[in-house]
């Protein structure tokens, strides 16, 4: 008659003493590791005074890009983000560069808007302890505001009507 696993185990001959000693040591070791979480990774913290690059993201309307997904790309790796997270309520995000070159910060909201900031970090910036004055920020893609926005809106409307009148006058000829 075929015996099942439980009956085979219960009716098996006793293990030799060396095997039982090794099994005991193995279980004791597992118990020791599991009872002491610090055995594998200890944790701690200290305050440091490294210089960060604080950025603020906003819409052209002036509204802050709050709690938006943010990724920071180092000059050496444009594929995998060196740091990721979300902007705070004020649309701010900071990172600490550890290499010179062009760092990129990409912020996306849930409506398909994306803002990309390019920050040139110089060797002097990494060495100096002063305020962040060596950071050259690229504002090429910043949306216009205030009076500039008004002028551009006026220019746009003017262009549309001039274009339409041009077509109309050609159609009449």
């Amino acid at each position: 008659m075929k015996k099942n696993f439980l009956s085979r185990t219960l009716n098996s001959p006793p293990h030799p003493p060396e095997f039982r000693a090794r099994l005991f040591l193995f279980i004791a070791m597992l118990f020791f590791i599991s009872e002491n979480p610090g055995f594998a990774h200890g944790v701690g913290y200290r305050e440091i005074s490294l210089k960060a690059v604080p950025l603020e993201f906003f819409y052209s309307t002036g509204e802050k890009m709050s709690y938006c997904e943010t990724k920071i790309f180092s000059p050496s790796d444009s594929k995998f983000a060196a740091q990721s997270g979300r902007t705070d309520e004020q649309g701010r995000f900071s990172f600490i560069p550890d290499a010179s070159g062009e760092w990129r910060a990409i912020v996306r909201d849930n409506e398909g808007h994306q803002c990309e900031a390019k920050i040139n970090i110089t060797e002097e910036f990494l060495k100096s302890e002063n305020e962040i004055e060596n950071v050259e920020q690229n504002h090429e893609n910043d949306a216009p505001e205030g009076f500039e926005l008004f002028i551009r809106a006026l220019l746009g409307v003017s262009l549309i009507f001039n274009f339409a009148l041009l077509i109309k006058s050609h159609a009449h000829k």
Partner: peptide
Amino acid sequence: DYKIVRTALLASTFFLASLVNVRIGPG
């Protein structure tokens, strides 16, 4: 031909409408 100026008028409205913000809750 007669719809060209009308098209320009509505294109201008659409162009400017994006500047009129509507507040909805926090956004």
